[in-house]
């Protein structure tokens, strides 16, 4: 196996251009599981952890190489909340948001938040420079995304205004270190409009648009509207039954979770 350890983004893009088949390695918390179980046999690895340019959090940019441990301290409340639930402290010390985006697992806990705040994913290649894709253009299916073989994820780019009233919650069977069976983010703007995103209930993170609409029309929802909101969320998700949970539980829990988060937004 060969390894390239670029110290700048341009070196990384260079290496990527020369060998588009190479595997990118950030914190390794997804890739190395595959390696250890014999599912990935990388021949050339481009290790990204020495690239400062992707390791910073700026105003509206969260570098791909930023670890969950750092994001636990984020000012974006829901981002901090979700970061605290990614794996364990050891996983959060190594795992990055870029890796989460790269893996694009339906259960990736960072993804519903990106969906809820309408983030863009910035990617770069030597050949075509930088491009930005809306989250829903980027995530294309179960563990599939729109990244081209010569590209690197650079950052998640946030819109100009991200409402501070936002809440995240995730259901797993354990109290810690668990893959979500359902996760949700609700963001409420000052005008009362909301955005509702869910994870683990569809091939990609999704927004519950009909449910959002319901609240946008009823910004001070009554109990009946809240109940209707939960039902709408449940109807909008398309979960599956697998060894972690059942379709009907996930559907039910998605509605309950979204309603509770909305209630928290309304209370704060």
């Amino acid at each position: 196996m060969e390894i390239t350890r670029p110290t700048s983004l341009s070196e990384a893009l260079d290496a990527r251009a020369q060998d588009p088949g190479a595997d990118l390695l950030a914190g390794g918390t997804d890739l190395m599981v595959e390696v250890n179980f014999g599912l990935a046999k990388p021949e050339h690895v481009i290790a990204l952890r020495r690239i400062d340019e992707i390791g910073e959090v700026e105003d509206r940019r969260i570098g791909a190489g930023v670890t969950w441990a750092r994001l636990e301290e984020s000012d974006h409340r829901a981002l901090a909340q979700l970061s605290r639930t990614v794996g364990s402290p050891q996983i959060r010390a190594a795992g990055t948001i870029g890796g989460n985006i790269g893996t694009a697992s339906p259960a990736g806990d960072g993804l519903p938040w990106l969906a809820a705040v309408d983030a863009e994913i910035e990617v770069a290649s030597q050949a075509r420079g930088t491009r930005r894709l809306r989250w829903d253009e980027f995530f294309t299916g179960v563990k599939r995304n729109a990244l081209e073989p010569d590209e690197v994820i650079v950052a998640a780019v946030l819109p100009e205004r991200v409402p501070s009233n936002q809440h995240f919650a995730k259901i797993g069977q354990r109290s810690a270190m668990v893959i979500s069976t359902v996760s949700a983010v609700v963001v409420r703007d000052d005008d009362g409009s909301v955005r509702v995103a869910l994870g683990s209930v569809a091939p990609t993170p999704i927004r519950a648009l009909a449910a959002e609409q319901l609240i946008n029309e009823n910004p001070q929802p009554t109990d009946e509207v809240l109940a209707e909101f939960a039902r709408t969320v449940s109807a909008e998700v398309t979960p599956i039954t697998d060894h972690r949970s059942t379709e009907s539980y996930r559907r039910h829990a998605a509605g309950v979770l979204a309603r509770r988060l909305l209630e928290r937004c309304l209370a704060s």
Binding site: I3, G28, T29, M32, A47, Q90, A93, A94
Partner: peptide
């Protein structure tokens, strides 16, 4: 697979699971 912590080490100032650290890196 990073799920038990028995392999924990301090790597450059942070505790990580060494089973998920690629030695070459």
């Amino acid at each position: 697979q990073g799920e038990c912590g028995s392999c924990a080490v301090v790597l450059d100032g942070a505790v990580v699971t060494s089973c998920l650290v690629m030695a070459a890196d």
